[in-house]
Design a protein around this nucleic acid. Structure first.
Lengths: 218, 218
DNA sequence: ACTTGTGAAGATGTTCACAGCA
DNA sequence: TGCTGTGAACATCTTCACAAGT
């Protein structure tokens, strides 16, 4: 099953499969079964096989998948075979934390510049990077041609930043501002809304508890 | 549609609906149509209506929904009618950023204690809170009985922290460690994997460019 | 014996059209 | 007229059973 359309939920899981392989590789494990992958990411084995079938068939019946090959294939399909350049916009506490977070680098996402509009921050260092003024973003991208940008600014400024990124021609955005942003449809946006995550947690617990509690309070 | 099971995707959206109402309320807007809500969260109107129908029927045909009432109903159903107490575990850069982030507080999530296992950090202040040793988590929860905990520690320590939270009897967890954690099935866990978000973005762009088809957007 | 790959069945989620009310 | 609420059609995703490969 090679040239088919890949469902969105499958893409989400493929990313997880890719990320869980690195520890296996480091531990020198050469082959892995769908059952093992399933356990690592909290799914079931047939689903893993179905998802992986979108990459074409290359598992060995009776043995499993070659870890290195699987990783290479996944990275290739996801466009992660070489390093991705990332701009970070916003050098507040969240932006700083993201900048210091080593996990991106390890997986091939290289934050190559940080921008902010606060004159008090511009020029200061953040790890190995120097914070640049937001007005330098477009010229900087002409040189670097980055693959994506992370928005870590207050909600009130997020749309303006998004507009700037569109203008700069950066094709995908991850934003931590809880405001949905509007961009041309060909762009990809992922909104990470931390408050929403907590709200969903609360809801799940509440609905479960309420299931035992029949008397309706309204 | 009152007493039925609420589908998981609907819960995700209900959280968004709830969060997008506050700005409306602050601007003094009294009623809102499904069409408007849909635009605010990037969905379509029939879906919003279908989702809201799980709350019972209370919209006014020809007019829309009363913003304050909708908000109250959503909060009630999600268990968010009163403040939620939250423990934060991990006072590194990400933990600090989360602690300083005002958005939680505004929506009724009160981070009431921060824990770390680093003696160099314990005792220091983080905003209005003093960092406590991780060993104090269980006793602290006996007093406070918090609703949820956020894990912001390195991946290698996340399972140990999760075990501690289970032992403390805290029913739900949001974790930023990219390692899936194992907990008893009655608990709720949300994993926010920042690297995965970037990987999914990369994948979407890559598949689109590669002329392969991707279904669904975000 | 063990594990992959997959068509088909089943479950779930989304869209639509329209009845009904303000 | 404008908008809600919803059953039914439609689309999508997941699970399963098993053929086939090693």
């Amino acid at each position: 099953m090679d040239g088919r359309k890949v469902p969105a939920p499958t893409i989400e899981r493929l990313a997880l499969y890719l990320l869980c392989l690195k520890p296996l590789l480091e531990r020198g494990i050469e082959t892995v079964s769908s059952e093992t992958i399933a356990r690592l990411v909290g799914r079931n084995a047939p689903q893993v096989r179905k998802d992986l079938s979108y990459l074409g068939q290359f598992g060995t019946p009776g043995v499993g998948y070659n870890v290195a090959e699987l990783r290479r294939k996944l990275a290739l399909m996801m466009g992660l075979e070489r390093e991705k350049k990332v701009f970070l916009v916003g050098a507040g506490s969240l932006g700083s934390a993201l900048c210091r977070y080593g996990g991106f680098r390890e997986e091939g996402f290289n934050i190559c510049a940080v921008f902010d509009n606060d004159p008090a921050k511009v020029g200061k260092r953040l790890g190995r990077l120097q914070i640049q003024d937001i007005s330098e973003l477009i010229p900087a991208n002409l040189e670097q041609k980055v693959d994506m940008a992370i928005i870590a600014v207050p909600a009130s400024a997020s749309q303006a930043v998004a507009n700037l990124l569109v203008e700069a021609g950066i094709p995908s955005i991850a934003t931590f501002a809880p405001t949905p942003i509007e961009v041309p449809s060909q762009m990809s946006v992922r909104t990470v809304d931390l408050t929403k995550e907590l709200a969903v947690l609360s809801c799940r617990v509440h609905l479960r508890e309420g299931a035992a509690n029949v008397s309706g309070a309204d």
